[in-house]
């Protein structure tokens, strides 16, 4: 067959530079601010809870380490006990609630992202008609999710930390914060942000794959 000339010189390649991908992703988030906000909201809640629990454990360790008898008694009354000289560990119950909230958060993200993909059928199909490869679409969704994840979990992490600290200040006075290692707090916040980005990406993975694999005709036929 004459048609089988399979020359594929490198210039016969469609591209989407990373800078452009980020630009398009940012545009998309901005234009769909409300939807982005909803996607991000469950993340903000879950991550602020994570950050709250982390910070609280630092506060409790700090109070016991400080040797402040009054504050330590208050803590014992509330059920917090730690063996002398050791660090406070998150209880199994707290962990259980934490994992549950993270799971609910991911399910929420998958759900809203699936809706977002359905909403964007036509846009995705159009991009494919203009020459976009599957992986361009995948990349756009991943970048959007990472940005949303970063912003959402940064807000959540700081909020959780601030709530935990101010709560402790009110209950135990300055003793609560006197012995906290600032590095530990920063570490908690950054781990919370990292976790948030990870959850956001995990949540978008399946919807983004669906979007990327969609054939342009199917996308074009999608609801009007």
């Amino acid at each position: 067959m004459q048609g089988k000339t399979k020359a594929n010189p490198p210039q016969k390649q469609v591209v989407l530079p990373y800078g452009k991908s980020v630009e398009i992703a940012v545009k998309s988030i901005k234009s769909r601010f409300f939807r982005s906000l909803i996607t991000t909201m469950s993340l903000i809640l879950a991550i602020s809870f994570y950050s709250y629990i982390k910070t609280t454990s630092h506060i409790i360790s700090g109070i016991f380490a400080s040797g402040d008898k009054v504050a330590a008694r208050k803590l014992s009354l509330q059920g917090y006990e730690i063996p002398a000289g050791e660090k406070y560990k998150t209880t199994p119950k707290e962990k259980w609630i934490l994992y549950l909230s993270l799971l609910v958060c991911v399910v929420g993200i998958v759900n809203t992202q699936l809706m977002a993909v359905a909403d964007r059928f036509r846009e995705i199909g159009t991009m494919k008609c203009l020459g976009a490869l599957d992986r361009f679409i995948l990349r756009l969704f991943l970048i959007e999710a990472t940005l949303q994840g970063f912003i959402g979990s940064a807000i959540g992490a700081v909020a959780g930390c601030v709530i935990a600290l101010s709560g402790a200040l009110i209950k135990f006075g300055t003793a609560a914060v006197a012995n906290i290692d600032l590095n530990n707090i920063l570490l908690s916040i950054s781990s919370a942000i990292f976790l948030g980005c990870l959850l956001s990406i995990i949540g978008v993975l399946y919807p983004a794959l669906l979007a990327a694999k969609m054939r342009p005709v199917e996308a074009m036929r999608g609801r009007d």
Binding site: R122, C129, M220
Partner: peptide
């Protein structure tokens, strides 16, 4: 149905295929 990408301006819509083309 036109299929203009809603989140992009007219100019951005027109330049998108050129971006893909490098």
């Amino acid at each position: 149905t036109f299929n203009i990408i809603q989140v992009m301006t007219a100019l951005e819509n027109v330049t998108l295929p050129m971006i893909f083309a490098g």
